[in-house]
Nucleic acid binder design. Structure first.
Lengths: 336, 336
DNA sequence: CTGAAAGCGCTTACAG
DNA sequence: CTGAAAGCGCTTACAG
């Protein structure tokens, strides 16, 4: 079924070059010839061979997203919404999306180098940055375009979208203090993650502002999954003088924390408050519904694609945007 | 940063052809030369140019999955788990995955023809088949490999994995009759879908077997989303002599149906039973948890990839498998 | 065991 | 306005 330029050219008694230019709308082809070529191509069902075009043009017309090591699974709600945004935005653009997972055993940067060197993609979408992220270092070094959610110290040649992590957590904590909570725990993630550092900072700022002490034994780490959130929260809640509010780094871990509370016979929103971050759709349907810092994950993903594509097509300008302000969404998990 | 065979060849004083063969492990290259080539390639960070290789070898080393028109969104739970399975399975294979959504306005087959003609992919994964599915007709006609979840009348040149739709729904209905439910409604999907026809058939068989009549006014259609499930269920539950059990075509619509019941002040699992199909992870966490027919969506997706890849590499044998038997997972939404 | 050559299907200067 | 030619980076018969 494969139709090539050659066949169209033969059918019409033209050269391959002329057909190519006609289809591409070059001005140096007579209008009548162009009409015939376009019509014939349509009839024959011609679509350019992707590989040939790529090889010749030296670009892939594709971008890549590799699930970061710190992302639990393909199908966790945050990742799904993020990927949905990438996919939906790309659907309207002449770019393809390559998605893969990090392959255990290899250095995290390996697959980026591989995809760039094989010219499979023209650029990358990143998230879950680390403070000194080796991926950013690599992309900077080779001048490969990227757009990332979050920004780290070395972010230079790429584009990024930021969320007001610290500020929004600080506000949330203040709100809970006003409501009467006083024994705060923080359920974080891997400590090198930018989102961990920023959200923890917001947590500390909030307590400080309200004149509360930070109890070190109430700072815990998770792997950003609900399972590890459940485990870590169980420990926190079994301590003497247990916390009455658990601020979680994201919704997934908050789901786990709520489960842990139930396991211990505590009523979430009454005996203990639990909050998340991200505002994934599922957060509205848990029992009780989860108070969270809601930012438009889906829209942000679309925005990242736009910025990356702009950058690939025109490597000059990509102005910084002001950080996105998450909405404090109060629900029953904090007694609201 | 791009390293090509040419550069390796120059570095070593060899021909491009020799380097290519050495890297490919051909037997006609001296062992010492091969060693040098492999080592140098590694040092220089060589990765073959994907487009060049594809063009020459005439294969894409990639497969495609296009979200069917009848699929609500990228991020609904079924789709996420399905895509997670595709992605995870592919991660271990030398194949890429292209995902896209159907572009409204174009015929559904358009994108399949386009991807095949541009040689972007070597084959397709399909689901949500229609009884006379134009996609299957197209792929059969052009002899393009595919693997599909569900099978339709014309399925010929492809491979498929089937689920026992009718049989499992029939069993579920019988179980509910034994529990005392007697006024059954069916919340289906677009009528041309294979899963709709099969699951509805199971519903009818179940009622017949138990000596119950089918009440036509209790057969409703949805778009497989929770929103349309909610709407359709609201109508059913407002009828005089309302149903005491709603069998839904999938979990998404069941989520909507449960919401509709709550909207009317009915207690799910007491005033009205609701059941789903698929066993998505979220079904265990709703309030109340959802009784459903659970089949391993994630695993099935992985299996489809395996079958497709086998077929691409060796277009001969792909034995039919017996249909997968969903597990009846009884939860509180049916009073279990 | 190694090299020279052809060609996959395009695009793009360069002639005419 | 159109065509002939070169070349993107590979792979693979064919010589030697």
């Amino acid at each position: 079924m494969t139709v090539t330029l050659k066949e169209i050219a033969q059918t019409l008694g033209l050269s391959i070059a002329a057909v190519s230019r006609a289809l591409d709308g070059h001005a140096d082809i007579s209008i009548e010839t162009r009409r015939r070529v376009v019509e014939t191509a349509r009839q024959m069902g011609y679509v350019p061979n992707r590989a040939a075009r790529q090889l010749r043009r030296q670009k892939a017309d594709a971008i890549g997203y590799i699930l970061p090591v710190a992302s639990p699974r393909f199908s966790d709600p945050f990742t799904s919404e993020f990927i949905a945004g990438l996919g939906d935005e790309l659907a309207g653009l002449p770019f393809d999306l390559f998605i893969s997972t990090h392959q255990p055993g290899l250095p995290e940067t390996e697959i980026y180098a591989n995809w760039a060197q094989s010219r499979k993609v023209d650029g990358f979408i990143l998230n879950r940055l680390k403070e000194n992220d080796p991926r950013i270092a690599l992309l900077n070094k080779h001048n490969i375009p990227y757009a990332s959610l979050e920004k780290c110290a070395q972010s230079k040649t790429g584009s990024f979208v930021q969320v007001n992590n610290a500020g929004s957590v600080e506000k949330l904590v203040s709100h809970l203090v006003v409501k009467g909570y006083s024994k705060f725990a923080f359920l974080g993630g891997p400590p090198e993650l930018v989102i961990h550092q920023a959200r923890l900072q917001g947590f500390k700022n909030g307590l400080k502002r309200c004149g509360l002490d930070i109890r070190k034994e109430l700072l815990a780490a998770t792997e950003l999954t609900s399972a590890s959130g459940r485990q870590a929260a169980a420990k926190l809640l079994s301590k003497p003088n247990r916390p009455d509010a658990i601020i979680c780094i994201n919704d997934e871990t908050a789901f786990g924390a709520m489960q842990a509370a139930k396991d211990l016979g505590l009523v979430v929103g009454h005996d203990v408050a639990v909050t998340g971050f991200d505002g994934v759709q599922a957060s509205a349907f848990t029992n009780p519904p989860l108070t969270t810092l809601d930012f438009p994950v889906y829209q942000v993903a679309r925005q990242l694609v736009q910025r990356l594509v702009t950058q690939i097509q025109n490597p000059s300008e990509w102005p910084d945007l002001p950080p996105i302000e998450p909405a404090i969404t109060l629900r029953a998990s904090t007694g609201d």
